[in-house]
Each structure stands twice: as structure tokens, then as C-alpha cells.
Amino acid sequence: MHVEGNILIHAPQSDVFDFAENVELLTQCIEGCRNVHELGDGKYAALLEAQIAFLRMAFKVTVELSRVERPNTIEAHIAGTPVNLVGKIDARAGLTLEPAGPAETRVTYALDVSLAGKLGGMGESVFRAKAKEYGDRFAVHLRDAVESKLLEKAP
């Protein structure tokens, strides 16, 4: 499944880029992503707890930046397995940064997610419905985090 969306961030492109290429900061913008720790070679492990209404799923995932091209492009690869359920999640997330004004950046996200096992065979429709919501919330969190970081930096 593929979802995409975009958001306007009141911050210069380089600040947004600095933030987004930091996996530990970036993953804070993903809801339910915790216990992020570096495994080496730019790879990180994390626990992703997704709550879809009353359905709660936990995934053990690895996150790595598969492409980093300043100033426009950051791509991450997130792969993992659900806890206590046979399955697999494989997501490729791309961020495209474009200047939208003197201190404004338009961030477009594109998320390609494939699910296998029970999640893919039975839960696909609800995940598909929720992916867009997750993506949009990620974008909002990213904007808020970048903008508040900028405020901290401001004298």
C-alpha cells in the first residue's frame, strides 16, 4: 500500500534536514516508536507500538536511513516483525524537502508499506485505512518538533 501527504514547516530547509537525518529525533515523530537504540552501521532497533482503535500491535523493527541526499531527500527503511504474531512489516518512507519561502519548507512524505502473515492476510483493509492517518500524524509531529526545536534555539 502507498500513502503520501505533505506539510508546511516554518523552518529553513537545512534545519528540517538536520532534524530528519537524525534517526533518534526522527523516530520520535512516529507514534508509538520507543526504545530506539543504535545497532551500529547506521542501523537502529526500536519497538513500534501501534494502536488502531482497540487493536494494539507491537512490532520489533530496525530502522536505517537508506538514502540521504542533502538538501532534498531522506529515505528510511523500516522492517520488522509483530510480537506474538507471525508476520512482517516492511516500510519504505521517503521525505522530500523543498523550500517554500525564506524560512519555510514543504515536506512531502511517501510511505510504501507491505505486510505479510496474519496482518497482511486479514488486517490489510484496516491498516490501509490507518496508514494515511498515521502518515499525516507523523507529518504534524515532525512539524511541531522541528518548529519547537527552532524556538529553543532562538535567543
Binding site: S114, A116, G120, G121, E124, S125
Partner: peptide
């Protein structure tokens, strides 16, 4: 199929 995964493997779908 989505990347080889059958996505409608039930009589509901």
C-alpha cells in the same frame, strides 16, 4: 497479492 502476500485470504474478502 501484495509483494507475494495474499491480501484477501478469507471468505470475508
Amino acid at each position: 497479492f501484495d509483494n507475494g502476500q495474499a491480501v484477501n485470504a478469507s471468505l470475508a474478502d
